[in-house]
Simulated assay, not measured.
Amino acid sequence: MTRAVVVDDSHFMRTVISDILEDGGVEVAAQARDGKQAVDAVAEHDPDVVTMDVEMPRMNGIEAVEEIMATTPTPVLMLSAHTEDGADATFEALEKGAVDFLAKPGGEVSTEISSHGDALVEKVESATRADLSSVGTRDPEPESGTIDADHGYVENPTVVIGASTGGPRVVERVLSDLPRDADLRVLVVQHMPDGFTERFAARLDRRSEYDVVEADDGMRIGGGEAVVAQGGYHMEVAGYGGGRIRIRLNEDEPMHGVRPAIDVTMESAAKKVSDPLTGVVLTGMGKDGAVGIEAIKGVAGATIAQNEETCSVFGIPARAIETGCVDSVLPADEVSKEILRTIQANG
C-alpha cells in the first residue's frame, strides 16, 4: 500500500486530503502543518509520497521541498492555489524537485477538493513512480541559445513538443537551448490546467530567445515564435501557409483523460504543415503522444523521445518508442541539439 505524508497549514484541508487518500487506498502515515514538520515527518516515516501545500508558516512548501530533496529524497506532489502567485510558486517548487502538482479548486482552503478526489489519488499514485535521480537534482541554469549548428537551417521548420509529469523543467531546458536563428515555429503541449499554462508561457518567454505566449483561438505564429497549449483546450493546427501556422482551440472530449492532448496537436500538424516538421515527446505518465508521433513519422517528419534515464516518469516516451516510429532516443540535455540536427539544411 502507498504511504503518504499530508502537509497543509489548514487542519480542515489536512483532514479532507487524508480522508480522500485513505478512501482511495493510500495510507496516511503522518500529517504536518508546516514545512519544518514536513521535513521531520518524512525523515521519521519514510513515506512513498508527500502532498505539499505551498503557503505555510515557519517553512513554506518550496523550502520544504528543497530540504526534503537534500536530506531524504521523496516524491512530492504540490497542491497549489489556482492563482497567478500559486502558479509561480508551483513552478519554483518543481525546480526544487517536486515531481508534479494539482491545483486546488476554490483556493487555499478548498471545500471543492473532495469532488476531485479521484484526480488527487491518481496524481499521488503516479508520483510514487517518479525517478528522483532526474527530478531531485538541478541542472545548471541553462543559457538561452547555447547550442550552435554547423550548417544552415531549412526554411520554415516546425517542432511540436509534448510533455506531462516532470515536463515543465525539461521543456524549459529544451526551448532555452534553441537559438533564435533556427527560426522555428514551436508548439508546446504540456499537461497542465488553465491558469498555469499562461504563467508557464510567460516563464518560457523570459528564459528563451523565442517569443512565447499562451495559445489563443485563431492566432497565427511564424518563425521565432512559440505557443503553449491553453489548459482546458485542445490545440489544433487549423491552417498553414506562407510559413505561418493558424491555431484553433476546442473543448472536444478529453483524449487519454487530458485536455490539451499531445496527439491532437501532433496529428493536426502532420495534416496541415507542409514544411519540415519535428515531433518531440518528453517525460510523463500515460500514452498521449504515441499516435501523434506515428502521424508525424507518416509524413516523413523527424521524431525524438527523451530517454528513460532522464525522465521523471518514462510513460509517454516509452509508448511512443513502442510504435517503432521514433528516430532518436536521447537524454534531456541533448534533445535541443537533435532538434537542430533535424532541420539542418545540409544535415
Rank of each mutant, 00 (worst) to 15 (best):
I245L: 14
V26W: 04
P254Q: 13
V335W: 13
V76Q: 00
E22F: 03
A149R: 06
E338N: 12
N60T: 08
S133L: 12
A290R: 03
S110I: 06
R199L: 13
M255A: 10
K36L: 14
A127G: 09
D194R: 05
R248W: 00
V121D: 05
M78Y: 01
L175T: 08
G195C: 07
H234M: 03
G222K: 06
D183I: 00
I293N: 06
F91E: 11
A238V: 04
D148V: 14
R341L: 09
S18T: 03
A149I: 05
A103C: 10
A295C: 05
T51F: 10
G292F: 12
K36W: 04
D252C: 04
I147H: 05
M69E: 05
R199Y: 02
D327Y: 03
Q344Y: 01
A130V: 14
R169M: 11
I343H: 07
V174W: 03
D9Y: 07
I339C: 03
P140F: 15
T303G: 02
V99E: 04
A87V: 02
A182P: 02
E209P: 08
K36S: 08
T342P: 03
G284P: 08
R58K: 13
D88F: 05
T197V: 01
G166F: 05
G232Y: 04
G167Q: 11
T111F: 14
T90D: 05
G223F: 08
M192N: 04
E251H: 11
E253H: 10
E66N: 10
M285K: 07
R169W: 01
G107Q: 11
M1V: 10
A93C: 15
F314P: 01
G324E: 10
E63Q: 15
L102T: 00
L77F: 09
F12D: 00
V258P: 04
R3E: 15
D53M: 11
V335I: 15
T111P: 06
D19L: 13
E66Y: 00
H82G: 00
R185P: 01
D205R: 06
S176R: 08
E125L: 13
G24L: 01
I296C: 11
P276C: 07
Q31A: 08
V50H: 07
R244N: 12
G61M: 10
F314Y: 15
V228D: 07
D148L: 09
S274D: 11
I247E: 07
I304N: 08
D131V: 00
S80I: 06
M59C: 07
G162A: 14
E92K: 15
E334W: 09
L330C: 05
F200S: 02
T303V: 12
V171A: 03
G106Q: 13
